Amino acid sequence: MSIQHFRVALIPFFAAFCLPVFAHPETLVKVKDAEDQLGARVGYIELDLNSGKILESFRPEERFPMMSTFKVLLCGAVLSRVDAGQEQLGRRIHYSQNDLVEYSPVTEKHLTDGMTVRELCSAAITMSDNTAANLLLTTIGGPKELTAFLHNMGDHVTRLDRWEPELNEAIPNDERDTTMPAAMATTLRKLLTGELLTLASRQQLIDWMEADKVAGPLLRSALPAGWFIADKSGAGERGSRGIIAALGPDGKPSRIVVIYTTGSQATMDERNRQIAEIGASLIKHW
């Protein structure tokens, strides 16, 4: 067993022997301040990774656009098919120029040779490549099948209805392509620590998230040296922004954090800054 596999296998073990965790309302004060600064709703939840206990939450059962955070769930569904012998990570998928959609920095470079399922998941999570996500959605049967996968996990809230990039439209009061912070946090925890996926697939999923290259201005910008984070960000229309993450000190994750916002007129930089400040408060009061 590799060191990384050992780390993920012992996530519940280490967490069980940690000192009790206590909620700190100071972080919620910052979440509410972010709402004021952005002029928009902000949803927040913080779960203990081992027990699933909610440590703090704000608007945990209000719907927010998922945006690209759905790509972690998508690759979880792909990995479940791999575990069941219905898919192979090494299978190569070929596609054409007509398949390319807006923001496809990886797939646009491989029109000639195609990409493997493993490479597509890596591109979808680490670079948020939209064509990679659409190609992977095709392998599982489309958005409705991802929703069905989530329902089978016990998540009857999260739903995907459309493809990239239309799913980022974020129309107010439109339930399409949305989740709730509580539902997303619980589902992410199941994917990373539950028995739904094999140990190898859980490790692969967290490795992809740990290698995320496009979430630097968010929670990662607030992390002290030595902290662990595996995350996936999302951005959408109407001032929408979000991030889902597993993080913790001492090089291992111990909490799940989900943050979503929508309806702001603020710039992307300002949305990023507010999420980073929430992260800084979380870490300060850990």
Rank of each mutant, 00 (worst) to 15 (best):
D212N: 15
T107E: 01
K30A: 10
I259K: 00
K213P: 04
H156L: 10
V106Q: 15
A148K: 12
L247E: 11
K144G: 03
S128P: 00
E119C: 12
L160F: 05
E35D: 11
V101I: 11
P253D: 06
L137W: 12
I171P: 15
Y95R: 02
D33T: 03
R41T: 06
C75Q: 01
R238L: 11
Y260S: 09
A170L: 02
G234L: 01
D161R: 04
Q88V: 13
N152M: 04
A222V: 11
L136P: 00
G76I: 12
R255E: 03
T187S: 15
K284F: 06
G242C: 12
S104F: 09
A200G: 07
D83M: 04
M67T: 12
A225I: 04
V82K: 13
P172A: 11
T186M: 08
W286T: 07
T131K: 03
T69D: 01
M180W: 03
E46F: 12
T139D: 12
A183Q: 08
E56N: 04
P249S: 12
S96N: 04
L197N: 04
P60W: 09
G242Y: 00
A266R: 04
L192V: 04
I125H: 03
T262A: 08
G142M: 15
K252Y: 14
T261D: 15
I171A: 15
A215D: 14
T131L: 05
R59F: 15
D99W: 07
T186V: 14
P249T: 14
A182F: 13
V72F: 08
Y260F: 06
P105W: 06
G239Y: 15
Q204D: 06
P25D: 10
A185F: 00
P249M: 12
A40W: 10
A34W: 04
I229G: 10
L196P: 11
D129W: 00
K252I: 12
A182V: 08
T147P: 05
E175H: 14
T126P: 07
L192S: 08
V106H: 15
V29Q: 10
D212I: 11
A225H: 03
Y103F: 04
R63F: 05
W227T: 05
I229F: 13
G226S: 12
L247P: 01
A40G: 07
S57N: 07
V29M: 13
A185M: 06
T27G: 15
L137R: 01
E102Q: 06
L219N: 05
Q37L: 11
G142Y: 08
D36F: 04
F228L: 14
E195F: 01
A280D: 15
E108G: 14
S201G: 12
S122K: 07
R255M: 10
Q37E: 07
K30L: 11
E164C: 00
Q274S: 10
I125T: 09
G114Q: 08
R59E: 13
A123D: 07
T138P: 09
H94W: 07
T158P: 01
A133S: 02
R63E: 09
R220M: 12
P25I: 12
M153F: 04
F149G: 06
L49G: 12
A215H: 15
T107F: 14
T138L: 12
Y44H: 03
Q97S: 06
K144F: 05
M66I: 04
W227Q: 01
G154T: 07
V106K: 15
N50H: 06
G234A: 11
V42M: 14
K190M: 04
L205P: 01
L55K: 14
G76L: 07
G85A: 07
V117I: 12
L205W: 09
G239R: 11
G226F: 11
R202Q: 12
L73C: 04
G76T: 12
M67V: 12
P65L: 08
F228Y: 08
A211D: 15
G114T: 03
S104D: 06
K190T: 11
D177W: 00
R41Q: 02
T107I: 09
L47W: 11
E26V: 14
E237K: 11
V157P: 11
E26M: 15
C75N: 10
E145M: 10
L79T: 05
K30T: 14
G52Y: 11
E169Y: 05
A276Q: 06
P65W: 02
P172G: 07
Y95M: 11
M127A: 08
W208G: 04
T187R: 15
V257N: 14
K284W: 08
L192H: 05
M209D: 00
L55Q: 15
G216N: 03
L188M: 14
Q265N: 06
L191G: 06
A183K: 15
N272L: 12
E87D: 12
G39Y: 04
G39S: 03
E108V: 12
A182P: 06
G194Y: 13
P172Q: 08
